[in-house]
Design a protein around this nucleic acid. Structure first.
Lengths: 223, 223
DNA sequence: AACTGGATAAGTGGATACACAGATACGCTT
DNA sequence: AAGCGTATCTGTGTATCCACTTATCCAGTT
C-alpha cells in the first residue's frame, strides 16, 4: 500500500494525531495555564475537522492536562502549588511500588543500561532543558517498566506528562543536573543491594524531596 | 427558570448523561467483558444521537472501563487475573498514602461517622451485593477524602469503579461480610492510635490481602 | 462615575446526512 | 476443503445546521 510507505508503523487516526499534536504542545509549555484551546483553530492547524479535536480534548481532560467546562470550552489546566505537591506525592508511592516490584527482574544488563541512561541524561543537560527532561523521564520509566505492571507504568507516565512543563521551567531557572546525577546514582546503588523494601523507600524519598525545589519557582500560571 | 426545577443541581449535558448511563451499567455488571457497545443502540436507548455516546466512550476508555480499538469499535474491558492483582496493588499504595495524609485531619467526629458507615455496611450486606459494595466503597473513600487531596481521591475512586463488577461477583459467591467487619474495625483502631506510618501499612495490607480472595473466582470474562 | 440591565455576538454542544476505509463474513473458484 | 475475492457492515471523519449558553458591550439609571 502507498499509505504504508508514508506511515510505516501504526495506524494514525485523525483523533490520535490531534491528541499527539496537542499533548506535545502542552508538554513543551507552548500554552500557558488558563489559555483557551479553540477546536476550530487547532482543527485547521492540523488539517481536520473539529470532531477528532473534541475527542482529543476528552482524552487530555481525562489525563488532567486540560479542563473542559460545559459550554465554556477547553482550557489548559494549571497546577496550583498544592496540586504540584500532590502529584509528586502520588508519583512517589506509585514509583516506589514499581521499583519494589521491579526488584526480582533486575539483572546485570539492567545496570549497564541504566548507567548509559545516566550518561545520556548528563550529556542532554548541556544541550538544553527539553532533552534533559525527556531523558530524566526515560530513566525513571526504565526502572518502572521492570515491574512488569502495564497499568502502573501507564499511570506513572501520565503523571510525568502533567508535571513536564513545570520541570522544564525549573530546569531553565536553576540548571541543577549536577546533584541530580548523584541522586540517581544512589537509586542505582540501592537497586544493586537487592533490598526491595529499601529501594521503595529510597525512591519515595527521592521523588518527594524534589517537589519543594520545583514548587519554589513560579508555576506557569495558575487556575 | 423552569429548567432549574427539573434539574436542580449541575448542568446535565447529553454527553454527561451518556457517560453516567454506561458507567452505571458497567458497574452493575450488566455487560460482560468483551461485549461490544454499539453507539447506535445506546444512543436510542437514552434518546440522543450517537455523537455524545462516542465522546462518552472516550472518557470511559481513559478510565479503563472500555477499550476502543481503531475501526473495530468499543468493547467492555475485562481484567485478567494479573490485572486484578495489579489494580489492588495500585490501590494499596494510593489508599495507604491517603490514610497517612489523612491522619492529621482526624478527630472524634470522624470515628462516629466511620462507625455509622460500618453499621450501614453490615445492614447492606443483608440486603444484597449491590448495596454492600457501594457502602464498602463509601467507607474507604470516606477515609481517603480526609487526606484533602482531590486528585488522589479521584484516582482511588476511579480504581474502585474498575474493580466493582468483580467485587459484586465475589460477594455473590462467598457472602463474606462477617470477617470484613472485623477487618475494617482494625482499620479504625489504627486510626485511633494516631500513628500515620502504621496506618499506612495496615491499609496497604488490608487491600492487597483481599485481592487473592477475589481473584480466586472466575472473572466476568477475559479479554 | 459606577453599577445594572438588556441586546448582541461568539462559541460550544448536539443532530443529521454523507463519504470513506477497515473489518468481518460470506460465497465463489480451484 | 482451502484459499481468495467480494459484499456488507460498522466505525471514523467531514460538512452543515440549529439551539442554547456564555461573554461582551453599550446604554440607561441611580
Amino acid at each position: 500500500m502507498a499509505a504504508d510507505a508514508i506511515e510505516p508503523l501504526g495506524i494514525t487516526t485523525a483523533e490520535e494525531e490531534a491528541y499527539r499534536h496537542i499533548q506535545r504542545a502542552l508538554r513543551m509549555g507552548r500554552y500557558r495555564a488558563g489559555d483557551r484551546l479553540i477546536p476550530e483553530e487547532i482543527a485547521t492547524e492540523i488539517g481536520m475537522s473539529r470532531m477528532p479535536v473534541r475527542e482529543a480534548f476528552r482524552q487530555l481532560a481525562a489525563e488532567g492536562l486540560v479542563v473542559i467546562r460545559p459550554n465554556r470550552g477547553c482550557i489548559v489546566a494549571g497546577l496550583t502549588l498544592d496540586e504540584i505537591y500532590e502529584t509528586f506525592e502520588i508519583r512517589s508511592v506509585l514509583e516506589g511500588l514499581a521499583v519494589r516490584l521491579a526488584m526480582p527482574h533486575i539483572d546485570v544488563e539492567v545496570f549497564e543500561e541504566l548507567e548509559r541512561q545516566l550518561d545520556r541524561m548528563e550529556r542532554a543537560s548541556q544541550t538544553g532543558s527539553s532533552d534533559w527532561v525527556v531523558r530524566h523521564q526515560a530513566f525513571h520509566l526504565q526502572i518502572c517498566q521492570l515491574s512488569n505492571r502495564p497499568k502502573l507504568v501507564r499511570q506513572i507516565a501520565s503523571l510525568h506528562v502533567v508535571i513536564e512543563p513545570y520541570l522544564r521551567i525549573w530546569f531553565d531557572y536553576v540548571d541543577k543536573p549536577a546533584s541530580a546525577r548523584a541522586e540517581h546514582e544512589i537509586l542505582i546503588e540501592v537497586l544493586r543491594s537487592g533490598d526491595a523494601g529499601k529501594a521503595e523507600i529510597v525512591m519515595r524519598d527521592h521523588i518527594v524531596e524534589t517537589a519543594p525545589l520545583l514548587a519554589s519557582f513560579a508555576s506557569p500560571g495558575r487556575r
